[in-house]
Design a protein around this nucleic acid. Structure first.
Lengths: 348, 348
DNA sequence: TTGAAAGCGCTAACAA
DNA sequence: TTGTTAGCGCTTTCAA
């Protein structure tokens, strides 16, 4: 229904190819879909004719016949968080490579939006949905799972889903970051945790606490605040932290955006990093290389996450031995961390 | 073909609904698709039955029958540029609202990738493709257009496309930015232009030159360098600028990422913004509020771009009077611009 | 190894 | 206003 009213070329079908190749449509289908058995000779002939004619398969018809689509969906809470685009890109490369098309949805953590998207996916015969957190109640998720959707959690588990999950070792990452600060000589370390109720937040906070405990360092509860995963939240959290009882010489923040917000707020109040306090982020968003100072952070391997995720849905692979994959992370030490100088932030 | 082998509920079809409602399948189709005429009574009855039964329409079958899909594609050169996610989000909100599904592709400016995506779209009966620049040769684009694709350029025109274009008034934006600097008292203003050959770069550079000319200010060609639209490029461009002949008191950079890179490089070399020079970006990426100093920038209205773009493809609207929409931009004055202080950057 | 034929679930003339 | 019917282009049994 192109409005241009242009003369569209009559689209070729497998019947055209079949006629030209002197075979039946089923043979063409077998060749093109790579299923069933066809003699090498006819295979080549059909392939040749198809190419010559400029035949393009119709995926819609295929999906209808197969009752399955080769599209996968990716649902994100917030595409503005730069960690997600890089994840999406990785997923897309991987999916495209394996013949899947990616449908993207940014839900804004709104259950209505989530429902809308999931309904769309069902209508479109999409079977696999990658999700980074879902705010839909468990019961509803289960319903969608029953209706035919397979959920693959990225970064966060999906309550009510089928248990597939690809995540970074958040706890280990948090320990890495915290230990790094401890080794530099910091003893009073603050933590800007992520929003409560999210496994990522929980795990990173837990890693922080464990590292502190293992080093025999006390944790001042007043030095832990929470924040949404945004710059705005980070800035606000920093202000809150400063208003409480400071005296910390370092901050470990639950992600890079929070760290960037905190960095901004620190600058606004006349403090410098790392002179006044050290700062560590999480995710290794590309931007962390271009903040002043460059941000020390924990690197997640998005390419590997994507690969692991897509492997779950590969029909041709043997059923995966486990439904959860936890990937290692690494610490990227840059300019925002250093030994406490004594010039550290004291209550004015 | 769910690997789980779970017992999927036998999916209901319009025939089931028809039977339960005591009407024919075409009536159900008419009701559900909202086409044709149906008496209000049957309409309600069918709708009621459909809801009760939990019927879900099969979009794939619909697409096949209609020879059209209600999906649109968005092809981006690089999803890592934070300007694009916000654009995608806006497009998605708009599209979703009108019943379209968005398929996203990040091409990395690679023609092979572009071809792959466009082929996929044709196979999937997608008719409308939003693109932010295409590196495919004009002739090939024309071929795709002939094969049935309608291209809607966002931000940049599509050579060989059908002429639809939604853009910001880049020239006016550049003039706004440059005039702002001039009004602050700057006379030697540098410009980090975008990559050559892209209309956006051209227009912004042109706006810069025009504003300078209108103010009777000379333009030192050595103060114009080009850069890809990335932080990395911006940092390199700044270094190059410094290596040439400085003495500028302000920089207008072609987008925010470039500005952020330049800001970083400036800090690295011990310079401060705006004390040593003023800096203006373009796009108003959310991050510009969290750099130190906050970046003065030109704001593009992505929501409006999205709306205008989607209006082009609305089949139910009268054919648009024009194929190009140019949207106004505005200047967001923040902390990175001020009057030249005399403390401006001199060659060390 | 190949072909005939019956769908997949929906839409859209055309008739009634 | 409604129903009948013939597709849309592909896959997939079943037989040959």
């Amino acid at each position: 229904m192109t409005r241009s009213g242009s003369v569209e070329p009559a689209r070729l079908t497998i019947y055209d190819v079949a006629r030209h190749a002197g075979v039946s449509s089923s043979t063409v289908s077998r060749v093109l879909a790579g299923r069933g058995t066809v003699s090498e000779a006819t295979r080549q002939r059909v392939l040749g004719v198809a190419r010559e004619l400029g035949y393009r398969p119709n995926h819609v018809a295929r999906s209808l016949a197969r009752q399955d689509s080769d599209a996968v969906a990716v649902l994100l809470p917030d595409i503005a968080n730069p960690f997600f685009p890089s994840l999406v890109k990785a997923l897309q490369d991987e999916a495209q490579h394996r013949g899947y098309t990616v449908i993207l949805g940014s839900t804004g953590d709104d259950p209505d939006n989530e429902r809308r998207y999931l309904d769309t996916m069902l209508s479109r015969q999409v079977r696999h949905v990658f999700v980074v957190g879902l705010s839909l109640p468990k019961a509803e998720v289960e319903e969608y799972a029953r209706a035919g959707l397979t959920f693959i959690g990225l970064d966060r588990g999906v309550a009510g889903g089928n248990g597939y999950l690809v995540q970074s070792d958040n706890r280990a990452g948090a320990k890495l970051a915290t230990r790094h600060l401890i080794e530099l000589g910091h003893r009073r370390i603050a933590h800007i945790a992520g929003p409560p109720g999210i496994s990522v937040s929980r795990e990173r906070r837990r890693g922080f606490l464990e590292a502190m405990a293992e080093a025999g360092l006390p944790v001042d509860e007043r030095l832990i605040v929470t924040s949404p995963f945004t710059e705005e939240g980070g800035a606000a959290a920093f202000v809150e932290l400063a208003g409480r009882s400071p005296g910390y010489t370092a901050i470990f923040s639950a992600n890079d955006l929070i760290a960037i917000g905190a960095l901004f707020a620190a600058h606004e109040s006349g403090l410098s990093v790392p002179e006044d306090f050290s700062l560590v982020g999480f995710d290794d968003v590309s931007l962390t290389r271009y903040t002043s100072p460059q941000l020390t952070t924990v690197r997640q391997d998005v390419a590997r996450m994507a690969r692991a995720g897509v492997q779950f849905i590969q029909a041709d692979r043997p059923a995966p031995r486990r439904r959860t994959v936890t990937l290692p992370v690494s610490l990227e030490v840059r300019q925002s961390t250093t030994s406490p100088t004594g010039r550290h932030h004291e209550r004015p």
